[in-house]
């Protein structure tokens, strides 16, 4: 379980997250939505310590990660995978090498083992034939599927997605969402920052609506989308739906 407890984050004088508390249960899919600049990415990045929180606690499986030293930060990163809007595949490595690098380097998997797992994961995201392709030879949707497979190669217990389809051409959004949906079905615990309201409605167990660094609403999707409580959420939904 991930538990965020009265979290604050400031960049200089700019308070970007203020008093954020939330829980993500094992197996749940949480969709985080809200206007641009509301702090969604920053929240996600705090959860795997790509940003250091200014105040408050974050617990992952009951361990407070805000007090960890460098070595244990790596343990958390193994547990919590991340998928970025712009993929960030390693351009000088082939798809399969993108997948095997961290398991070999960080988890000390044997080359054979890492390779076997990578082949299987590429199959799972429908890209068996692209194993030896460099990222520059892949379409946006394919890159993002490789990026998801790369995160999965570390056997994470939690996956964070930061707008995984926002940089994609419309016709490629579905192939990525399909992969994410099948992950959700298999019980992966996921926090997804997204503008895909259809995905949130269909897959999420819980929708978190953020604005100006605060969580304004937490509700199951059918409730949130049919009866948003705050004016901000109503305004936002009018704009995006």
């Amino acid at each position: 379980m991930i538990k965020v407890d009265h979290l604050y984050k400031s960049f200089g004088n700019n308070e970007v997250l203020s008093d954020i508390s939330l829980e993500i249960n094992k197996g749940d899919v949480v969709a985080i939505i809200g206007p641009s600049g509301s702090g969604k990415s920053t929240l996600l990045r705090c959860i795997n310590l790509l940003e250091v929180p200014s105040k408050g606690k974050i617990y992952i499986d009951n361990d407070d990660i805000t007090t960890l030293n460098q070595r244990n930060v790596i343990k958390i990163r193994e547990k919590v995978g991340m998928v970025f809007q712009h993929f960030h595949l390693f351009p000088h490595k082939t798809a399969i090498d993108n997948l095997t690098y961290a398991p070999i380097k960080v988890k000390q998997n044997s080359k054979d083992e890492a390779h076997r797992k990578a082949i299987e994961l590429l199959k799972r995201v429908g890209l068996s034939d692209k194993a030896d392709s460099y990222p520059s030879r892949l379409s946006g949707g394919q890159k993002q599927r490789v990026a998801i497979a790369r995160a999965l190669a570390m056997d994470p217990q939690y996956l964070l997605f930061d707008e995984p389809t926002s940089a994609l051409d419309p016709e490629m959004v579905k192939e990525v969402l399909d992969v994410m949906m099948s992950l959700a079905k298999q019980g992966m615990t996921m926090a997804v920052v997204t503008h895909e309201m259809g995905f949130a409605k269909m897959v999420a167990d819980k929708v978190i609506f953020m604005d100006h660094g605060q969580i304004l609403e937490v509700a199951p999707p059918n409730e949130f989308f049919s009866h948003p409580e705050t004016d901000r959420a109503k305004e936002f939904l009018e704009k995006v739906l």
């Binding site: 970025f84 712009h86 960030h88 595949l89 390693f90 690098y101 961290a102």
Partner: peptide
Amino acid sequence: GQFEAAGALGVPYWSMMKDI
């Protein structure tokens, strides 16, 4: 993003520099 991707995978600093 390359630093972040490596960081998010738990790759230690020196390995990240050398390999990525």
